[in-house]
C-alpha cells in the first residue's frame, strides 16, 4: 500500500531517549477502515509509537503521515486530535471531578477554542449524541456520577466513549482490557469490533485471548521495529516471535 492510499503511514521512524532506542526504523501502514492489533513484549516501543502518532513525542527521524498527506511530525497534540486521531491511554484517564455526562460533553466533537466554549450552550443534537453514547458504553444510569466513583472497567469504557464522542477517523486504543474481568474483556472486544465497522482502529494489547477474539491482522513489535506481521496464527508460528515472547 502506498502513502497516498493509507490512513496512517509510518516510515523509518526512530526515537531515542538518552541513547536508548525506543523506536528503531519503525515502518507501519494502516489502511482506511482497517482494524489492527499490535502486540509485543514490554519495551517493544508500543506506547512510544502511540506518542509519536499523537504528537506527544517528536521522532528523531522518519515520516509520519495521516490521510496520506498530513505530516504529523509538525503538529501538536491538540491539532492532531482535531485532525481526527483519538487516543485511549493505557491507564484509564478520565476527568475524575467531572460527571460521566460532562466527560462525554467535553469530548464531543465541537469547536475547541476558548471563546467558543465560553459562550457554548449545549444543543439538542449534542444531547442526543451523548445519550446514544451513554447507551453504547452502558453508563446511562451513571450519567450524573463523578467519574472518580466509577469502577476500573467503567472508566475504561467511559474513555472509549469519549474517544467515540470525538468522532475520530482513527482510534488508538492502548490496552483496553487491562484490569478487566474475563466477561468485561469479552464485552470490550465486541464493542471494539462494533466501532471498527465505521472507524479505523489500532489496538495495542498484551492479552492474547483478547487479540484472538478481535480476529484481525496483527503486527508484532520488538525493540522498536516490526518483527512480524499477519494473522495471529501466522505470527504465532513465527520462530522469532516465539523466541521474543518466551525468551528462548
Amino acid at each position: 500500500m502506498t502513502r497516498a492510499t493509507s490512513l496512517l503511514y509510518l516510515d523509518g521512524v526512530s526515537v531515542s531517549f538518552d541513547g536508548f532506542k525506543a523506536l528503531n526504523e519503525l515502518s507501519l501502514t494502516i489502511a482506511p477502515g482497517e482494524m489492527r492489533a499490535i502486540i509485543g513484549p514490554n519495551g517493544a516501543g508500543k506506547t512510544t509509537m502511540m506518542d509519536v502518532i499523537t504528537g506527544k513525542t517528536r521522532p528523531d527521524s522518519g515520516d509520519v503521515f495521516f490521510n496520506g498527506a498530513v505530516d504529523l511530525t509538525g503538529e501538536d497534540e491538540a491539532s492532531i486530535a482535531e485532525l481526527g486521531i483519538g487516543r485511549k491511554f493505557q491507564k484509564p484517564t478520565v476527568f475524575e471531578s467531572h460527571t460521566v455526562w460532562d466527560n462525554l460533553e467535553l469530548a464531543l466533537k465541537a469547536p475547541r477554542g476558548p471563546f467558543a466554549t465560553l459562550f457554548h450552550t449545549i444543543t439538542g443534537a449534542e444531547k442526543t449524541r451523548i445519550e446514544d453514547l451513554l447507551d453504547l458504553i452502558r453508563l446511562n444510569d451513571k450519567r450524573d456520577e463523578l467519574a472518580a466513583n466509577l469502577s476500573h472497567g467503567q472508566k475504561q469504557w467511559l474513555e472509549i466513549g469519549m474517544l467515540l464522542a470525538q468522532d475520530p477517523k482513527l482510534l488508538l486504543v492502548d490496552e483496553p482490557a487491562a484490569g478487566m474481568t474475563d466477561a468485561e474483556t469479552a464485552e470490550t472486544a465486541e464493542l471494539l469490533k462494533d466501532i471498527a465497522n465505521d472507524h479505523s482502529v489500532v489496538v495495542v494489547e498484551h492479552d492474547m485471548v483478547f487479540v484472538r477474539s478481535l480476529g484481525v491482522k496483527v503486527t508484532v513489535l520488538h525493540e522498536g521495529s516490526v518483527l512480524a506481521e499477519g494473522s495471529l496464527d501466522h505470527v504465532s508460528a513465527d520462530e522469532r516471535v516465539v523466541e521474543v515472547y518466551l525468551g528462548r
Binding site: T54, A81, S97, H98
Partner: peptide, 19 residues
C-alpha cells in the same frame, strides 16, 4: 469544565483536541 479538565488531567485534555 475544560479548565477543570486541564487541572485534573492536562495532557488528556490536549489529546481531546483542546489547546
Amino acid at each position: 469544565k475544560v479548565l477543570v479538565a486541564v487541572r485534573d488531567a492536562e495532557s488528556r485534555t490536549r489529546f481531546l483536541g483542546y489547546r
